[in-house]
Design a binder for these strands. Structure first.
Lengths: 162, 162
DNA sequence: CTAAAACATGTCGCTAGGCGATATAATGGA
DNA sequence: TCCATTATATCGCCTAGCGACATGTTTTAG
């Protein structure tokens, strides 16, 4: 260890790195496709995701800003801005909740529905082609992460266990 | 159709939307975790991904800017800037390719390796917990996208299957 | 019933990070 | 040698997310 130049660390010096990197690459590829697809419909990728969230609200809930923020994993103010942009683009519109005047409910416009429908189709098509590769990559990582349990504690061997 | 107010479109008006949205939510959750984990190590999520790419270069290749750009799915100039930042943070360093002076090869510093190792462990831990849910969501979408082949052409029924 | 706490949304200024356009140097083939 | 191609780097711009703050509404405690 002392004699090894620190340049010469090999790809496998961190055991599961390659699999994680491959999985991540799959994700980037999918996200990149989604971005292109959205742009091909004239909207931003985030707006597509926003519409996805709004369009898939469970029947007993409504798409308030905070609900959307929660599902989009964004701060509420970022969500407000996202909805602003989508509203300006004519994809969604705000309504006031009659029972709680603080809340503003967001819903898709007919144009929003149309674009969403188109993008869902495109994504399903893409996933039809690439879901399998993603599954494979994820499965590998999963197998690894299972074997990797308690990798922190004094484990002597970490490689022989499947 | 004429009498329906356009407000009342239900969640299932686009058949597979919920599954796609759920899958996307899983992705966001994972990416959000990755972001937090990276920040907990004092670096940006993109820098972690950069190190992943560099650390997992196949033995017969080297991490040039263009290679990284390709794997990160970024423009080369964005990659240059990403590497700049990572270099400033002491995570990576540039070297010149002796055989092609145009190329600059990027490699991890010892500190970079240390942080990468830590983050890989954190991510494997996380995936140990959530890979299953991601798999499930992906599997659903996949099943759907299979059934959805040629959904464009005049298909009368799209709901009765399964 | 009212004051205060909690909550939901909205506004503003800032910043990071990605991109297009452009520049410069090195390589390779005719 | 000369020029097209390749690889990296630089610059200015712009988007989208965030923290801090503001406003209005509901709920709760007393």
């Amino acid at each position: 260890m002392a004699v090894m130049e620190n340049e010469t660390k090999l790809a496998e010096s961190i055991p599961r790195l390659v699999e994680l990197a491959d999985f991540r690459h799959q994700l980037r590829t999918f996200l990149s496709f989604s971005e292109s697809a959205s742009e091909s419909c004239g909207i931003a990728a985030q707006q597509y995701q926003l519409m996805q969230v709004i369009g898939s609200v469970p029947a007993d809930r409504q798409a308030s800003i905070s609900y959307i923020a929660d599902r989009m994993i964004l701060r509420h103010n970022s969500t407000v801005e996202l909805v602003d942009r989508a509203e300006r683009a004519g994809l969604v519109e705000r309504r006031h909740d009659e029972h709680d005047l603080r809340r503003s409910l967001v819903q898709l416009t007919p144009q929003g529905w149309a674009i969403l429908e188109k993008l869902v189709a495109l994504h399903l098509e893409e996933l039809h082609l690439h879901a399998e590769a993603m599954m494979r990559a994820l499965r590998k990582v999963q197998a690894i992460s299972l074997a990797n349990r308690s990798s922190k504690n004094g484990d002597s061997g970490e490689d022989e266990r499947r």
